[in-house]
Nucleic acid binder design. Structure first.
Lengths: 120, 120
DNA sequence: ACGCGGATTCACAGGTTGTTCACAGGAAGA
DNA sequence: TCTTCCTGTGAACAACCTGTGAATCCGCGT
């Protein structure tokens, strides 16, 4: 108890499933090919899914060192995650930007796509 | 599940069969000529088949002593196992590398054997 | 002591990922 | 609209990780 990552920790968000302890994330059962950093960032976001997380919080959680202003690492990895998530499930948006605040993980159908009953 | 190795433990993964308790592993019934370490590592991987296993977990499971950073023994034995497995069943890949995470045992047909660049 | 097979360690090459930078594009407030 | 700040993005380079052949070490039987 207490520690953030148990070996059996499983976070499910719609089609997305993240298993930090097993170094695995998947969409509809299809394994995503993520690097260490990408998985760590996705895990950090997943553990805080649904709420806006500041760059500083994300940075200290993943990089384990003090956040410096103008640090762009988080942005770069958000970009890489988005590319892989988009490729895995076209038409869906996973990571939302909150201008001036940070990012929020929350899988949702892209506005451009027409919704159907089963998608929701 | 109690102790990790029962005398009658049998792990079957497609063409591959491992019997840790009898110090035997075989492919399509043909016995592999493995050394003790090779068999131990294969057994450790087989017991965790399908999931990514870190070097540290493999090392402590097989060598039974604390893992030191930069330890390369696991890599060397993975290499030797690969050579013997490849020789036993050409065209198949058994041990997959997950860069930065570890290894995963999961027998699968080599991509090159059933697809070509133009197929995709 | 010697030879042998296996275990362990070493060193280097090559490949992958992590980090940083620079600039483009966009959002919010005056 | 203008200005400023924030975010998106491609690319360059550094740092790290893995593959691999081979040297060295070790235990055992002769």
């Amino acid at each position: 108890m207490g520690l953030a990552s148990h070996a059996d920790e499983i976070i499910t968000l719609g089609h997305l499933e993240v298993r930090p302890g097993e170094f695995v994330a998947s969409v509809d059962g299809r394994r995503l090919e993520l690097t260490v950093r990408e998985l760590q960032l996705l895990s950090a976001l997943a553990r805080r899914s649904g709420r806006i997380v500041s760059r500083e919080e994300l940075y200290t959680a993943v990089w384990q060192r003090p956040y410096r202003a103008h640090e762009r690492s988080v942005d770069v990895y958000v970009k890489r995650l988005r590319r892989k998530l988009e490729a895995a499930l076209p038409g869906w948006v996973f990571i939302h930007t909150h201008y001036g605040f940070g990012y929020r993980l929350s899988p949702s159908l892209s506005q451009l796509f027409h919704t159907t009953a089963t998608d929701r």
